[in-house]
Design a protein around this nucleic acid. Structure first.
Lengths: 133, 133
DNA sequence: AGGTTATTTAACCAATGAGCTAAGTACATG
DNA sequence: CATGTACTTAGCTCATTGGTTAAATAACCT
């Protein structure tokens, strides 16, 4: 029953209402009432969505009198971005250009050492644990 | 019933088995049998997962004799990354440094023009439609 | 205390999703 | 053609999810 963190985060993101809520929160912290306004949906429904988002670590909630202001929580976003990074080479051109550069540098380095078998294709090692920047 | 593309993509990613399949496919195209091996799960279950991934645009499938080789399809990954980009400023330090730079540039520009009210907080305009690179 | 506002909880329902087994399809080969 | 290999489809469970309304909780305001 307790889904792993990445799974609950992706599951939370798989709903357009929840993504819209996050988009609103990207503009700044706000109340449940405020968040509910754009939707043709009962307040309890929104409350549930917020619970899902909170459980997924995508938002955090405070207390101010009778309001529970919601705001974006960065950690789960970061996790998702990190996971996605493992696949970045499949679509990001500049990422691939960087890969090409590193490949060249490795080749130059290798030229100084005794030659050994090398593959031209992108391999497991190349795309593990890479980040932007 | 027909979920929007981003929703079905996130839904597809919300399952650890499917993410593991994608991880395997990141190493290269392979058959259903091969993909099924690591899992303690019936073949039809895997077949369903693959259908979900395909429907989500995360993989595409070919035909070679009796095999249906699967491979990563970049588009949906790119979509997800694009959506995530709207929130990057919440966790990516280098992204924020870039924002700071742009802020400075705008300030300098503004210094030449007649002064007007300005907010210090990051606003809607600043994070819309931004990409990496 | 009593009322109003903000939000959550409870109880329910219909639809979806992930797994299973058993049967069906497609191609390859003896 | 018959058999084997690689899948997929069909039909069934059971749990989860997204929505509902009605009631409860919490904090503020006379």
């Amino acid at each position: 029953m307790p889904l792993d963190p990445l799974s609950s985060t992706f599951a939370a993101l798989a709903d357009p209402t929840r993504r819209a809520i996050l988009a609103r929160l990207a503009l700044g912290e706000t109340s449940v009432m405020e968040l509910a306004k754009p939707f043709d949906m009962s307040l309890p429904a929104i409350s549930k969505h917020l619970k899902v988002l909170e459980h997924a670590g995508l938002i955090s909630r405070g207390r101010e009198a009778q309001w529970r202001p919601c705001r974006i929580a960065p950690d789960s976003f970061k996790q998702v971005d990190g996971w996605l990074g493992n696949f970045r080479r499949f679509w990001d051109e500049s990422f691939n250009r960087l890969d090409g550069l590193l490949e060249e540098m490795k080749a130059e380095e290798a030229a100084k050492a005794p030659p050994r078998k090398r593959k031209t294709s992108v391999t497991k090692e190349k795309q593990r644990g890479r980040t932007r920047g």
